Amino acid sequence: MDPSARAAFNANFTDEKYQQFLTDIKAGVDHPIHFRLAETPIFISDDFYAKLQQAGADVIGTILQPDFKELTERAIPDQWRVAKENGHAHMIALDFGVCKDDNGDLVPKLIELQGFPSLYGFQSYASEHYKKSFDIAEEWTGHLNGLDEVSYIELLKKTIIGPHQPDEVVLMDVNAPEQKTSVDFYITQQYLGIPVVSLEGLVQKGDQLYYPADGQLKPIKRIYNRLIFDEIAGDPDIFNKAVDIRKPLNVEWLPHPNWFYRISKFTMPFFKGDFVPKTQFLHQVNPIPADLESYVLKPLFSFAGQGVIIDVKPEDISAIKDPENWILQEKVNYEPAIQSPDGGVKAEIRLLYLWPDGDAEPTLAITLARLSRGKMIGVRYNKDFDWVGGTVALVRK
């Protein structure tokens, strides 16, 4: 983290500026923000950014292997396998904790990853508001790889809309307006002009999908998919009430739902390198480590931290009936490296990649960051704290 930028920010910080930031950022969208925004961005030093880039490149290199699909076939649950899978994930998110190595230097450590969208619209919007509200020097940017706000949105458009017209591409989620991250849906709509629809708003005729608009049915050529199957798994009648999107349909997916599983916790055991904690499928762990307190136990098929066992005991392992669907991962200790007015705060930085059709590999485009004082990163673990929540990570241009 950049100490000089941090010191300058903290010296000029006031709660009045923060409250004005919240007022301004909410004024630009006609939709509530359902998560807490932190009081500060993260200022990444050049050295740490170089490590992040290398860590990301190590992971992407594995994803680009010709046999990656073969390695990850088992990742897709049969009940959620969707037809007409494409050749790559259009969006990739890599989560890195800010940690310390044995030499006392700050390093990124891979926590999780997903071949699924994150807040690609909101993070660009938030980055510009943080910079403006807190008078952050022009040398800092939240857009990566030489992108600025305009060229970033163009890359987003190229990825999501591609060769189609905006009204032929829909952003789709189950009960879309009610999602915690729905503000991102409507900012994306502002940027790209695409409609936002719920799963039950899809209309099927033959193998063609439509959505209602202006008193008529408009054909859908591509779905910008924000639906996670975990959220509908508890409703066995869901596809009696809505289109069964798992079937072969005359529609393109972005990204295809199968990539949510292929690029996920399932993939962690295949990654190697200085920035990846040792990870094994539980059924392949032999012997069980004596120092279980140094590991976390994670179910493969869950999201948002659900089911994770942080303080692992031998009886936790013996109680698991499907060890092939769990990973045992070396515990990552977050360093409270972000200095707030009253002590250090832990941080996680998500690298967000965009991979439009026709590109040989994904482009690192923007970040999402989260600050935490709780035992785990995430809103549900940080209630009643300040200097925590969602934010952006800035780098020098």
Rank of each mutant, 00 (worst) to 15 (best):
F275H: 15
Q339D: 14
P289A: 08
P336E: 08
Y295K: 02
Q339P: 00
Y295Q: 00
A319Q: 12
R350H: 11
N325E: 09
K272L: 06
G273E: 05
F281K: 09
Y334R: 02
Q306M: 10
D311I: 02
A304V: 11
V296D: 05
E324G: 15
I320H: 04
L282T: 02
G307S: 13
Y334A: 07
A304S: 14
E330V: 02
Q339R: 11
P299N: 10
G344W: 10
P336S: 09
D291I: 00
P341G: 11
L292P: 04
A337R: 09
L292Q: 06
N286S: 15
A337N: 11
Q284I: 00
Y334Q: 03
N286T: 04
I317S: 01
D274K: 15
F281T: 03
V285R: 03
K272Y: 05
L292M: 09
T279M: 08
P314H: 06
P277K: 09
D322P: 01
S294W: 00
G305Y: 07
P341F: 11
S318G: 06
E348K: 06
F281V: 05
Y295T: 00
V312F: 01
P289Y: 06
L300N: 08
F303L: 13
A290D: 14
F301H: 14
F281S: 03
N325M: 03
P323R: 02
H283D: 15
D322K: 14
K298D: 07
Y353N: 07
L282W: 01
K272N: 13
A290I: 09
K331F: 08
G307W: 05
